[in-house]
Computed example of a mutant assay.
Amino acid sequence: MKTAHDLVALAKSQIKEVSVADAAQAIQDSDVLLDVREADEYASGHIPGAVHISRGLLEFKISNAPELASRDLKIVLYCKTSGRAALAAKALNDMGYLNVESIAGGFDAWVAAGNPIAKPQALEFE
């Protein structure tokens, strides 16, 4: 019986990962940056310009988004440490997307490298 770790390892052997050192350039060159973490994780801070689609809804949401229909789009995705992103990249590859990259080490590696993060502005009431 396979474990989640086994599935992630298998996915990582079949996808393209970009190092955190090369991630900023990959993001700049991409058509879309997807954050596949949960909504609360995204809200607590994310890579600037990232679009949020939780891993659990990815296949459904991307299938219903006409702007994401082209299989030639260059997609970069990430999660917290890269496991969910690897599974998401594998799923997108299986759906026929040709240019999918996952950020190795995920958001945690991005932050540890001193890269910028975006946080939603809190509402202020006077």
Rank of each mutant, 00 (worst) to 15 (best):
N115G: 10
V20P: 05
Y42H: 12
F125E: 05
D72G: 00
A86Q: 07
L10Q: 15
I75Q: 06
S70D: 11
T3L: 00
A39Q: 11
G56M: 07
D22N: 08
P66A: 01
D94H: 01
E124T: 13
G96N: 06
S30N: 08
Y42D: 12
L33P: 10
N99V: 04
L58H: 15
A122R: 15
D108Y: 03
A9S: 11
D72Y: 09
Y97V: 01
S54W: 15
Q121V: 08
E38C: 03
M1N: 15
D35Y: 08
A24K: 15
K16P: 02
F60H: 08
L33H: 10
G49L: 00
G114R: 09
Y97Q: 02
K80Y: 12
A43Q: 15
S30P: 03
D6H: 10
A9E: 06
F125T: 12
N115Y: 13
E17C: 00
D108S: 00
A122S: 11
A113V: 05
L7Q: 09
R55G: 00
S82P: 00
K90Y: 07
T81M: 14
E126K: 05
Q28S: 07
V32K: 11
R55Y: 08
V32I: 14
D72Q: 11
Y78R: 09
A26Y: 10
V8L: 14
A86D: 14
D31Q: 04
D40E: 14
A88C: 12
S70G: 08
K119I: 06
A65E: 13
E17D: 01
E126A: 03
M95S: 08
L33C: 11
G114H: 07
A65Y: 05
G83N: 13
N99Y: 05
F60V: 02
A89S: 05
G56E: 05
Y78D: 05
K119Q: 14
Q25A: 04
Y97L: 03
P66K: 07
V18P: 08
